[in-house]
Write a protein that binds this DNA or RNA. Structure first.
Lengths: 203, 203
DNA sequence: GAAAACATGTAACCGGTTACATGATTCT
DNA sequence: AGAATCATGTAACCGGTTACATGTTTTC
């Protein structure tokens, strides 16, 4: 049940509405967790019902209103407990590698196209993550600055360090995927050129 | 819908029963895909109903029987089509990295314990995958040998090469995770020793 | 004779996705 | 006035997990 903890992670920094959270999932945190609004709003209600959050009605314009949630003490305890509990590792389910294992069933061109898409996908991620690291280092991340402004001096360095550490991990992952797919492209070429050009007779 | 394609991948090699498939998911293919029997049997029935598989009742002992499935031509077309279609990349949902980003909320000891578990988990995977590569190279993989015996000479090298390629990719991933978590351990130590031992006065 | 492995399911549940639905406010 | 954004949901569905349920055959 990690959606709940992703929500905690954002709400311990500052109170937010469901819509604010939804936007966060589209950007920064969205890189490690994503959820559609249809999941966010009901979960917030459940968490409030369980006493982990407290919602406050805030007027918005002449007739509109919105509900801003903040984490209660019970909520902080729950979040801290989750943070201290080791993860359970689920068995892998990796379509990209499943496919790679049976690539002899694909047309060579289709195989290459898929490896190219793999490279593009992870190149896109890589760029975003490098940007994030730059933002953290330059102090130009709005979200992180808000978070740091509410953090004690002692914890400020930690907060930044762990964020950087996370993104560096994701960068390493992406780089590994790209390198792997590049090797795959060469492999497809090699396997198919050999087929067309059999080894010369040993005269 | 990749369970279906994982089943195809196994059944195009040779006919199998649901139980055989279930065992496969516990071992070799289980590294890139896993499914419990409660999912396998109904899916096989559905695939048969759709004409993608054909099941054959096989007597087993005096009273027992089992159902062995083989892929029909329509099934092969479906599998090949999937193999030629690029994957859609779903948005990430990565509990380990989500947690890492907020590690300042965990006790330092709990944080380190989780990084250690991460290392252990991926070390275990690494060992299994290295074994797989060795098996492929030595020709000691029973499953792969059965598969190769039904493969034309031209495709034999491809089959082996793509399998090796896949496992090498998984090895790189695991190594990256281990290296990352090791850096994390050092980071936790550094951040907490600094706290206890503030920088000496610049006299 | 007992245990391990073979063989095949059903049912309840759960987290997540997709599609649908609606209305207010702010910006241009 | 219209578009973009803010704001909040419901409902149907789907893939996957967990727990439950049952019987046969082979091996020791």
């Amino acid at each position: 049940m990690s959606l709940r903890n992703a929500l905690f992670a954002l709400l311990v920094v500052e109170p937010m509405t469901g819509y604010d959270l939804h936007k966060q999932f589209e950007s920064s945190v969205g890189h490690v967790w994503h959820a559609p609004d249809s999941q966010i709003y009901p979960e917030l209600k459940r968490m409030e019902a369980e006493g982990l959050l407290e919602g406050e009605e805030i007027p918005w314009g002449p007739r509109g209103k919105k509900r801003q949630y903040h984490v209660t003490e019970a909520g902080k305890v729950a979040f801290r407990t989750w943070m201290n509990t080791p993860l359970e590792y689920a068995r892998t389910r990796d379509p990209a590698h499943l496919k790679a294992a049976y690539l002899e069933w694909a047309d060579p061109e289709a195989a290459k196209e898929q490896l190219r898409v793999h490279i593009e996908h992870h190149t896109g991620l890589l760029e975003q993550w490098r940007e994030k690291v730059t933002e953290i280092e330059d102090g130009t991340s709005a979200m992180l600055n808000r978070r740091l402004s509410k953090t004690s001096d002692a914890d400020r360095e930690k907060t930044k360090a762990y964020k950087t550490f996370t993104y560096e991990g994701l960068i390493t992952q992406a780089e590994a995927e790209i390198a792997w797919a590049r090797r795959g492209l060469k492999l497809v070429d090699r396997l198919n050129s050999e087929q067309r050009l059999p080894s010369p007779p040993a005269d």
